[in-house]
Structures are given as structure tokens and as C-alpha cells.
Design a protein around this nucleic acid. Structure first.
Length: 944
RNA sequence: GCCCGGGUGGUGGAAACGGGAGACACAACUGCCUUAAAAGCAGUUGCCGCGAGGCGUGAGGGUUCGAGUCCCUCCCCGGGCACCA
């Protein structure tokens, strides 16, 4: 303290310095006492003497952070503060609250940093986590001290690998509509209860053939599949790591689609359940909609069109329009194309169908080359201009018997449905565009509504032109027509009703170092063998170079070489897996960084358990279903919308597998989900367009200046490149953590995004200063609270505040709760002395949001220890009743006067009082009102 | 193009149900205190108008005694998906 003029600032003012010393002290107290450790019903974390042992449980979680080297900025902890306030409130309200925090620690940024610096990713990760822990501790987060981990801890990823083994050793039984242990499948093949694919009996097959069949049923399997291969980075990338320009998000290298052998998880087996169970969770509608979109269920039919080669199977959602199917289109990569290409164009082939090529083979080859060279952006930009080429063959429309030409075109995607369509230009805009370009016939099979002047008609209407021998749809609506034609097709064996999903199986392998190794080795057959659980965890080997081999960025004809491949001593192992020591080589891919986050909620329940992923007792207590059809899961999960699809879909998928296999008691991991908004900030550019430090920009009359120069303001993400980063540490230094917490929570509702405004933080600081001053004398440090009886009005304000704050806290409306607390505090500020009976509940109600100052004041007014488990104040009904009601009186919708009437007065009495009111009488001017409406306790409305 | 979410003072935002629009806070302004400034405290502050009063929740229409809230049409902003058959 080196104030120039110490007399000016009272020595006991609640300023940043005092706040910081109080905060550090209480953070230490909480850490020492494990104040926020939840109690389990059984096992090492059970404790009958815990203040909340036996209480109702509440499991609150945040989407855990990826600890980057940059640390937290003020936008990151918004959700964390909210769940902390909520957890503290619910704990005071009597719950056994589990609120843990862990770290999603595997991932590419750390690996890249490791490569750049030559350091080990584990060391970097450890440092980053320590920094995050320090920052969160400084914000006063009340996390469970016994339940924290990083996904990169071997003790944690042991169980990630264990789950992988469970998934590997399972198959999806359509009859049970659930995953089952793979042994059951093998047994049913062996005893003949299930037909063996290929027609031979199980006994006839050799070991390799059997394994091939079994491996083909596993929920995780190796598949040759088109993936995003990025030679410049030396790794395959997930779709979300590829930009819309078809380049890598990191490094901007070209990305090629290549067929490579990769691990995949059979998430598609769960499409229907992932969709159906959305009904049972309390999630924001947009997130549910995004998941439904992503799964992309569509109902229709598979229909076979005969050709000279194999029949072409199409998927369509409009089987009712089959009479208008005048041509077919296959994706250029479709496997049947080559078999359909004749030596020469058929007699009389239309010129526009050949693209000017002499033979079909030439035309197809040229078109394939053309299509493959197009980037995704070019393909989308050219969506209106349809391209394609006739393959030289015809197919037969199974309903009309008509010969229809077969084309390849890139508007049909290989990856969706069957990669082939029946084209119905009359009812499909894309097909219409193509038909116009290639001069193909167009037949309407749905009567357009009157006045329709467009081209393809995709709406509802009666079927027309839809009769053939044995079947007619004419006159039927779309729904009935679909049903009738599907029945007919099924009867004729030409098609079958079908449901198609957009969802693809989950690409599960990455060519990286910093991820979970697979618990898989390969034997002499080249087929995968699961390691026994006893060999877990399979730890990452120590290597010198963590980067995968990279190639010429433009050389598509290269193949990934994962960094683990260079750890030859680790890769080539001799193991005894039951039939004596044999040589194996390990899988050198690692898991994607979604793996560790797909089940972490479960591990929080029993983080130290070395024998089980989680003990069933504790799992059922914290996550199990509840009465009233409650599906179960974490009670509250808060995180950003950016995880609406991938993380949440993967976590739901793993949860369902574990549920099917009996390891967990609920089919859904997260019961209630809230997406917190983002905090963004203003950024400023000078006249060159260069960002200037936002903290040093000054506003004068609505214009902005940096070092005297006019700058332009824009609004965007907080980040280094925009030079607008503000860190929580800076806020703690300048105001204290409690002020920062109050400010972030008072800015608006949790779900809303909002702009950061450092200038506005003082409002929250002033509130806490007034609170402090109400309890502690700024000049002497003495406690000001008096044992005086509060006035009636003060009692009323207090109890209204309690009722309102409880209600707001229950619904996570921290912003309005704070407004009510400020109102009460401002009222107390105006009192001659501060009654203890008011100060105590005020402090307790402040505690969830500004915990350090509350603990400090609670102690100063004579209580020992922490208030964390002290009961939250309850409103006394006696003070909530109102004696009089002020009724606004409207005449023709405008308020003209007010009358005060005793609460509970009869409608007649209210009416009379209203009509007698001076201004009302004047406004009516002696006229008899036509109608008088009295709404009890609300208002009077007069129609004149 | 399709599907969501949202438009309220200078700013962030309040207003379970259709019932007094603008709580709380920032900024701005005024006063007290001070040699002065900061801090603090007290007050003013939706817009127009000296006032009575009028007008106000993106625009227009509708339902209603009464609409920020419900219905229709449109505009703008944000997000997701996108040649998905």
C-alpha cells in the first residue's frame, strides 16, 4: 500500500487488493477442507458423516476444456461460473451436488506444438492443465477435488481402451435391437440358429473365414473407405477438419479423397434409437433439430431397375412418382457403371448425351476425370448447371416396362442412399434441370395445384399418368399412392419399403501420436486381435519425433505413415494371448480426440476405481433413470452449441452401447442440456485495416481513437489476432474474482451471446462494495451489523427477495437474481443501521454468486467455517401477502388513473372504486361506460 | 433453397399467464463532498413537447376491453444443413 494520500481511501474499503487477499484465503480453505467434494453412496468416496450424505443428488457438468497454451480469456468461463453458482445454490438448498472438472487433453494442437518445440506432448499438457487449474481456482470454482482427471492420463485412457474392447467384442442384434456380446453371435452361427453368410455351415468354414465373418459384424471394424487424406499434414482428417474449399483447416493444404483402410464405429446401427431417444431428453430444440438433421432419416423405398448387367438398386422417397421415372442416374464412382458401358453408342443416340465422345467408354472416362477434378466448392457453385453423360445402356422401369437411359452425373452422390437414383423430372427440380439439359422426356405424375407455373412440382396432389397393367395410382394422394406402389413392388419382388439415413459410420482412426493407442494387435493373417483387459492400458511409447511423415502436399498417391509406426520395438511384440507366445504387430493409429470425451461423465462418478469403469451402485445413484419416465443422465450439462452434433452424438452412442451391455443403467448420458452464449468483444482497425490493441482505444462522442488516430470498430471473437483478449486473471487483478463473477452473470441470460465491456464491470464492484460497507465499517473494520428489529417494510422486501431469488436460481436466471439482490442491498444501504436478521440472509443469498466475500462476511459476523452447506434462506409466507392492490384503470386501452383497494376486495368493490376515481370520472365525462372488466389483483378496463 | 434462433432506450438487458413496457446495471447529465480530481453519496435520464398531452418493443395488417407476448404477410441479423434422391 503506497497511496499518495492514504487518508482519502478508507483502509477497510472492499477494493481489488482486499478482494484478492480474501479470495486467496478462502480458496485455500476450500481446497484444504474439500468443501465441495460430493459423497458417493458406496466405495472409497462414501462418507456417512458428510453433511449431504443421504440427501437428494444433483449431477452438474460443464463441457470440459481442451487446455490450450493460450489459457482462458473472459469468454471461456461464462458457463463454468453459471454452473458453479447453480451448484453452490443447490448445495445450500440441501442437495448432494456433484460438480467436477476434468481436461480433454489429447489432440492435435498440443502435438503440433510438441513437434515445433521438440518437447513431449505430455509435459506440455501437464503445464497447460496446471495453468487452467490455477485460473479456475482463482475464479473460486467449487469443484470436487477428488474427481478430476485428464483424458491423456493412462489411468483414464485404460478405460477408454476398455470401452473400445467392449465395442469391438459386440455386434448389433437387430432382433433385440441392441448390442450383444460377440460370443452370442458366434454361438448362434455354430448351432445353426443363425444363417451363416455365404450359405455354408459354420463347421465348414476355416478359422480365417470365420473371423472374417465375425469381424464384419463387430461394432467397430476395419474398412476400406474413402477418407480425407492430407499428404501435407501426413494424416487423414475428419470432415470437420476440412474447409469448404477442400483444404485442411490447419495449414491450408490440399485434401484428397482416397480409399484407405481405417477403423470405423458402427454408429449407424443406432440411427433409429439416437433419433427416438431425443424425445426423452431436455435439450434445446435447435440442438435436437441439428441431431435429427445429421442423422437424416428418410422414409421411402428401394427399387430395382433391371439392366443387361446387374439390376440397379435406387433409393427414393417418392416411389409414388415411379411412372414419371424417365431416366436413371448413377454416381460417377458407382460400381455398376463399368459393366453398363457397351463398345459403341446404341443406334440413334442423341448427340447431347455423348458429350461429343466417339465411344461410351471414352465419354465415361472423360466425365469421371472431369467430376473428380472438381472441388466441392465448384461442384456446389455449378449446382444449377447439370452435367453428366449417357453410359450407353438402358434400364427397365419395373412398373411401366419402359426402357430408360442410364446416365452418370455428379449431382448424384456416391455416399448417399445407394448412389443411384430413378430420375423423375416432373416432381424433382434437380431431375428437371438435368432433363432439360439433356432433352429427356418429362412426365407429370402428380397434378400440380391450380395456377402452378413452375417446372418440377414437388407439392401434394392427386396422382396422374400413373397406370399400368395390374396397378394404378391415379387419383390417389401422395401418402396412399406411396403405400399402394410399395405393396405392389414388394409383391412383384421389384422393391421394398426402406428407411435411409444420412448418418455415416464414425471414422475412428487418426495417424497421430497424441491420442489413445488401440488395444489391438495383428497376427500373421493380418486380421485384428483384441488384447485382453489384463494388458490395459496400452501406453503410448516414448518416441523422439511425434509428427507423422509428411509428403508433397499435392501428391495424392501417398499413404499415411503414423508416427507410432516408427516405434518398432513397441510395434513388433511377442505376446501370449492364450495359445503360447507369438509375434504380433500393434495397431499404429490412435483414436480421434472425441474418444475420451465420449464417456467422461461416467468416470467422474468413480474416478479412482481400478477394477471397474464405474461401480454400478454409484452409477445408478448419479445417473440412473428416475420416476415418471425420466430417462436418466447427468442432471445439467452446460456447453457450447459447437458440440451440438459430433461430441453429443458420439457420447450418446457409447452410452447406448454400454447400456445395452449392462454396464450403465441409463440409455442417455445428458438429461438436461443448456448451450451457454458466447462473449465476444469489439476490435478496432486503423486506416490500414490493421488491428490495434482494443484495451487502448478511447471513445469520444461515439468515435474511436487509438493514439490519437481515428479507428474503426468491429465486433468479433475474442482472440490474439483481433488484439482484443481480456483474461480473467486481469479482471481478478483489477476487481477481484467475485466482481468478475457477478459481472459475467449479470450481463444477461446464460443462453445469450453478449459483448464484453470492461467499463461496465465497475457496476458489479460497486454492488459488492456497498454490500461490504453494509456489514463492515470501511474506516475501522468493525462489524456494523446490529441486533435491531427490522422494520415491517424491510422484512417484506427481504422475503420477496428470498422468494424471487430462489425462483430465479432454480431456473438459472442468475442475471435477474442478482438484480433482486442489488435491490435489497440498496434498500439496506439506506437504513440507519443494518439488522442482523437482514444481513445474514443477504450474505447467504449472495454466496452462490460471490462466494468469497460472502464467506468472509459470514465469518466476520460471527460464524465459523464455511457457509457452503448452510441452508439457503426460505421465504416466510406471512411477509409475501399484500394488504392492498393498486389497480391501474384503463379506459379504451389507455391508463387514465389508479385506485388502491384492499387485497381480496370483491370485483364489485374494485369496480366502484375505479368508477369513483377522480381522473376516471373526468375522462368519462359523465357517460355511462359500456362495459367494465375487472381482473382480480391486476387491473380494471373500462370500455366507454 | 430448407430448418432453427432472434430484432425492446445511447449500451447490456427486465417484463411465468395476453393486463402499469423499460427492473437491475453501464454510459451521460446534475447536485453534495473536495482547493481540485478520483472514489463515494443523492438525483435526472425511452422519444417528441415549456406544458397538458401525444408517440413508442423491426414494418404492415388481424384477433382482443387490452398485444413486446397470440395469428397472417414482409424486412433485417445470427446459426445449422445444403444437388441427401
Amino acid at each position: 500500500m503506497n497511496d499518495v494520500n492514504p487518508g482519502d481511501i478508507p483502509p477497510h474499503r472492499y477494493d481489488a487488493g482486499l478482494a484478492n487477499s480474501i479470495e486467496a484465503r478462502w480458496q485455500e480453505h476450500w481446497a484444504q477442507h474439500g468443501t465441495f467434494d460430493a459423497v458417493n453412496p458406496s466405495g472409497p468416496l462414501s462418507d456417512p458423516s458428510h453433511p449431504r450424505a443421504g440427501a437428494e443428488k444433483l449431477f452438474v457438468m460443464d463441457m470440459f476444456p481442451y487446455p490450450s497454451g493460450a489459457g482462458l480469456h473472459v469468454g471461456h468461463p461464462l458457463g463454468y461460473i453459471a454452473t458453479d453458482c447453480y451448484s453452490r445454490y443447490k448445495r445450500m438448498a440441501g442437495y448432494n451436488v456433484l460438480h467436477p472438472m476434468g481436461y480433454d487433453a489429447f489432440g492435435l494442437p498440443t502435438e503440433i506444438y510438441a513437434v515445433q518445440t521438440g518437447r513431449h506432448p505430455a509435459g506440455i499438457t501437464e503445464e497447460n492443465i496446471a495453468r487452467y487449474r490455477g485460473q479456475l481456482r482463482r475464479l473460486g470454482m467449487g469443484y470436487d477435488t477428488k474427481r478430476t482427471f485428464a483424458t491423456s492420463d493412462p489411468e483414464y485412457y485404460k478405460w477408454t481402451q476398455w470401452i473400445f474392447l467392449k465395442i469391438f467384442n459386440s455386434w448389433y442384434d437387430p432382433a433385440a435391437d441392441a448390442a450383444r456380446p460377440i460370443e452370442e453371435l458366434v454361438a448362434s452361427f455354430a448351432d445353426g440358429t443363425r444363417a451363416v453368410p455365404g450359405g455354408r455351415s459354420w463347421a465348414e468354414l476355416d478359422e480365417v473365414e470365420r473371423r472374417e465373418i465375425v469381424d464384419g459384424h463387430r461394432l467397430v471394424y476395419v474398412d476400406e473407405a474413402p477418407v480425407n487424406w492430407c499428404p501435407g499434414l501426413g494424416t487423414v482428417l475428419s470432415n470437420e477438419e476440412v474447409t469448404s474449399e477442400g483444404r485442411s483447416e490447419r495449414g491450408n493444404f490440399p485434401v484428397f479423397t482416397r480409399n484407405l483402410r481405417q477403423w470405423k464405429m458402427r454408429i449407424t446401427a443406432y440411427s433409429e434409437r439416437l433419433l427416438a431417444d431425443l424425445e426423452g431428453v431436455d435439450w434445446p430444440d435447435p440442438v435436437k433439430a441439428m441431431q435429427r438433421n445429421w442423422i437424416g432419416r428418410s422414409v421411402g423405398a428401394h427399387i430395382d431397375f433391371g439392366t443387361s448387367a446387374a439390376p440397379i438398386r435406387v433409393f427414393t422417397t417418392r416411389p409414388d412418382t415411379i411412372f414419371g421415372a424417365t431416366y436413371m442416374v448413377l454416381a460417377p464412382e458407382h460400381e455398376l457403371v463399368d459393366g453398363l458401358v457397351p463398345a459403341a453408342w446404341p443406334e440413334g443416340t442423341h448427340e447431347v448425351w455423348t458429350n461429343g465422345h466417339a465411344t461410351p467408354a471414352e465419354a465415361v472416362a472423360a466425365y469421371r476425370k472431369f467430376a473428380a477434378a472438381k472441388t466441392d466448392v465448384e461442384r456446389q457453385e455449378g449446382a444449377k448447371d447439370k452435367t453428366g453423360v449417357f453410359v450407353g445402356s438402358f434400364a427397365v422401369n419395373p412398373v411401366t416396362g419402359a426402357r430408360v437411359p442410364v446416365f452418370i452425373a455428379d449431382y448424384v452422390l456416391a455416399g448417399y442412399g445407394t448412389g443411384a437414383i430413378m430420375a423423375v423430372p416432373g416432381q424433382d427440380e434437380r431431375d428437371w434441370d438435368f432433363a432439360e439439359a439433356f432433352e429427356l422426356p418429362i412426365v407429370r405424375t402428380v397434378q400440380p395445384t391450380e395456377g402452378f407455373e413452375g417446372k418440377a412440382f414437388t407439392g401434394e396432389g392427386p396422382a396422374i399418368n400413373s397406370s399400368a397393367e395390374g396397378v394404378s395410382l391415379d387419383g390417389l394422394g401422395v401418402v396412399e399412392a406411396k403405400a399402394r406402389i410399395i405393396a405392389w413392388l414388394e409383391e412383384k419382388g421389384a422393391g421394398v419399403g426402406a428407411i435411409n439415413y444420412r448418418l455415416r459410420d464414425w471414422l475412428f482412426s487418426r495417424q497421430r501420436y497424441w491420442g489413445e493407442p488401440f488395444p489391438i494387435v495383428y497376427d500373421e493373417t493380418g486380421m485384428p486381435v483384441a488384447l485382453p483387459e489384463s494388458m490395459l492400458p496400452v501406453e503410448l511409447p516414448e518416441i523422439d519425433d511425434f509428427s507423422p511423415k509428411t509428403f508433397d502436399p499435392d501428391d495424392a498417391d501417398t499413404a499415411p505413415e503414423p508416427p507410432l509406426g516408427r516405434a518398432t520395438e513397441w510395434v513388433e511384440v511377442t505376446l501370449d494371448l492364450g495359445d503360447g507366445p507369438k509375434k504380433y504387430h500393434r495397431e499404429t493409429n490412435t483414436m480421434p480426440n472425441w474418444a475420451g470425451s465420449s464417456w467422461y461423465e461416467i468416470r467422474y462418478i468413480d474416478p479412482g476405481d481400478e477394477n471397474e469403469m464405474v461401480s454400478p451402485d454409484n452409477e445408478r445413484y448419479w445417473m440412473g433413470p428416475r420416476d415418471g419416465g425420466h430417462i436418466g443422465g447427468v442432471d445439467l450439462y452446460v456447453g457450447g452449441v459447437e458440440h451440438a452434433v459430433l461430441h453429443l452424438l458420439y457420447a450418446r452412442f457409447w452410452q447406448k452401447v454400454l447400456f445395452d451391455l449392462g454396464y450403465v443403467s441409463t440409455a442417455e448420458p445428458f438429461h438436461k442440456l443448456i448451450n451457454q452464449g458466447y462473449i465476444q468483444a469489439y476490435a478496432y482497425t486503423d486506416k490500414r485495416g490493421v488491428y490495434v490493441p482494443a484495451a487502448e482505444v478511447e471513445e469520444v462522442d461515439g468515435n474511436f481513437f487509438y493514439e490519437g488516430e481515428r479507428v474503426e470498430r468491429e465486433y468479433g471473437k475474442i482472440g490474439k489476432s483481433l488484439k482484443n483478449v481480456v483474461t480473467p486473471d486481469e479482471m481478478c487483478d483489477e476487481y477481484g474474482a467475485d466482481t468478475f463473477r457477478v459481472y459475467e452473470m449479470s450481463m444477461g441470460p446464460l443462453e445469450a451471446s453478449r459483448p464484453w465491456d470492461t467499463r461496465a464491470v465497475v457496476g458489479s464492484q460497486r454492488y459488492l462494495q456497498r454490500l461490504w460497507r453494509n456489514v463492515v465499517d470501511e474506516n475501522t473494520g468493525a462489524v456494523r451489523v446490529a441486533d435491531a428489529e427490522p422494520a415491517e417494510e424491510t422484512w417484506k422486501i427481504l422475503h420477496h427477495t428470498i422468494a424471487g431469488v430462489r425462483e430465479d436460481m432454480e431456473h438459472l436466471r442468475l442475471n435477474t437474481a442478482i438484480a433482486k439482490l442489488i435491490t435489497l442491498n440498496n434498500h439496506v444501504t439506506g437504513l440507519a443501521e443494518v439488522p442482523r436478521a437482514i444481513a445474514e440472509p443477504l450474505i447467504l443469498m449472495t454466496a452462490p454468486i460471490a462466494p468469497h466475500i460472502a464467506e468472509e462476511l459470514w465469518n466476520r459476523i460471527g460464524h465459523g467455517g464455511s457457509l457452503a452447506n448452510t441452508d439457503f434462506p426460505e421465504a416466510d409466507e406471512a411477509y409475501l401477502v399484500v394488504e392492498t392492490v393498486t389497480y391501474p384503470v384503463q379506459i379504451n386501452g389507455k391508463v387514465r388513473g389508479r385506485v388502491e383497494v384492499a387485497a381480496g376486495a370483491t370485483e364489485e368493490a374494485v369496480r366502484e372504486a375505479a368508477l369513483a376515481e377522480e381522473k376516471v370520472v373526468a375522462a368519462l365525462g359523465g357517460k355511462e361506460p359500456r362495459k367494465v372488466i375487472v381482473i382480480a389483483d391486476r387491473m380494471v378496463s373500462i370500455v366507454a
